[in-house]
Simulated assay, not measured.
Amino acid sequence: MFTNTDLTGYTVLVAGTPEAARRAIRRYGAAGATVRTLSSPAAYKPEMLDGVALVVAIDDGDPRWSALPETCRRRGLLVSREEAAAPGGHVTLIGGGPGAEDLLTVRARQVLQEADVVFFDRLAPHRNLAEYAPGAELIDVGKRPGHHKVTQREIERLMIQSAQEGNNVVRLKGGDPYVFGRGGEEVISCAKAGVPVSVVPGITSAISVPAAAGIPVTHREISHLFTVVSGHAPLTDAEYEHLAGLGGTVVVLMGVGTLPQLTAGLRRAGMKADMPVAIVERGYSDSQRTTISTLTGVVTAAGAAGVKPPAILVIGEVVRLANGCEETAGKLAELADTLGA
């Protein structure tokens, strides 16, 4: 396969049925080549090879293609044999993990290679998406706080429409599709429309981003459970009471905007004032940063640090185990003294 090479100025002949050859046609076109197509062995004419630098022979199951590679070799042409594109007409939801490209799963990379269309979010690893999904149409449907570029219902409509047109559709999300990723809604929409859909799980940021800061969500004799909470909207008093009463570790996704309500609610529910809290911003990026404080001090600390989303909140004794744990413990002790806790 030559699609990682700049083929501008070269002519490539892709031989195979339109359905089987559609991925190759896109890939070589994206690499800059002038693409000619030959959809049937019966349509072959010798002049079709004039000016061609490479012939791509797609294995579409027709035995009559067997003579073409030998014909090309006699004319001194390069021949690349490729598998037929996977059948289209379905949707695959992919969890892209916390954003680092090397944390994409092997299966995710394989599915992207066969994609015709990719709808991707801003928190998904998309910087080199054109390389992972060569020739695919890439559509940014990312949501930002207070601004949805494309509504959820419109995303679902576009995915279904594209699949019904015969495409392999990939919905690439950050984290895991089923952890506050609205993956369930998208699967239900596809199923109602009669579109086959599958899910490739991803590494959820609820576990991986705390780990990037050296914080385990569980630790023997410190925390034997953890709870993952959406901070998108304030919780009810009953929910605060449940969280405070459970103990263990609380991990909050999308919680920067509701941090004051969250901390006040947990204090009202009886969580101690000096409970350690960490805010991990932009996990696994070059600008990753961790702000550590206590339940009653974290709002002030976040304001002083200029904390902004995307960020993960970790509430619990495990925060004392963060990278540089001795320094962390010392800072927390000082805060506790200041608060009189």
Rank of each mutant, 00 (worst) to 15 (best):
A238V: 04
H224D: 12
K192V: 11
E239L: 14
T300I: 02
S198L: 09
V150Y: 12
N4W: 11
M271H: 11
E154S: 13
T5C: 10
E239Y: 07
L78S: 12
G97C: 06
M48C: 02
P87K: 08
H148Y: 12
Y44G: 05
V251A: 01
H219M: 09
E19R: 04
M271G: 12
Y44V: 01
V319L: 08
G142F: 03
T294K: 03
L68A: 00
A212P: 03
D286R: 14
T338G: 03
G245Q: 07
E281P: 04
L158S: 11
K45F: 13
A84K: 08
T249D: 00
D140E: 12
I207H: 05
E47A: 15
L7K: 10
D116V: 05
P276H: 02
V179D: 13
H224P: 06
T249L: 03
G96H: 10
V14M: 01
T290P: 00
V217D: 07
V106G: 10
D121Y: 14
P309V: 06
V250S: 05
V150D: 12
A30P: 02
Q288N: 09
V91G: 07
V299N: 11
S205F: 12
A304K: 12
F2I: 03
H126Q: 07
Y178Q: 13
T37D: 04
R74Y: 09
V256K: 10
S39L: 00
S198D: 14
A124T: 00
A163L: 11
L332R: 01
F120I: 03
R320I: 02
A213C: 09
I58L: 11
L295P: 00
Y240V: 01
I292P: 06
L339Y: 02
M254R: 06
H219W: 02
A100V: 03
G166A: 08
V117N: 08
R22W: 11
H147Y: 15
L225A: 15
S80I: 05
F2Q: 15
V197N: 09
K308D: 14
A322I: 08
E186N: 05
I155W: 13
F180D: 03
D176N: 07
S287T: 12
I160L: 09
E165V: 02
T300W: 09
E334I: 00
V106K: 06
E19D: 11
R144Y: 15
T92H: 08
P63C: 07
A86F: 13
L138D: 14
D60N: 02
T290S: 15
R26Y: 06
T37Q: 13
V79A: 00
L68V: 00
V256F: 08
A238T: 07
P98Y: 09
L235G: 10
D116G: 09
V169H: 04
I292G: 00
T3N: 06
L225W: 07
E317L: 03
V197C: 13
L339P: 01
V169L: 10
L339F: 03
S198P: 06
N167M: 14
G306P: 05
L259G: 02
S223E: 07
R144F: 13
L123H: 06
G175R: 11
P260Y: 08
G88R: 05
V277R: 13
T338K: 09
G142K: 10
G174Q: 15
G61K: 09
A33E: 09
P63S: 14
L313T: 00
L321P: 05
S230Q: 06
A163H: 04
V79D: 04
V298E: 05
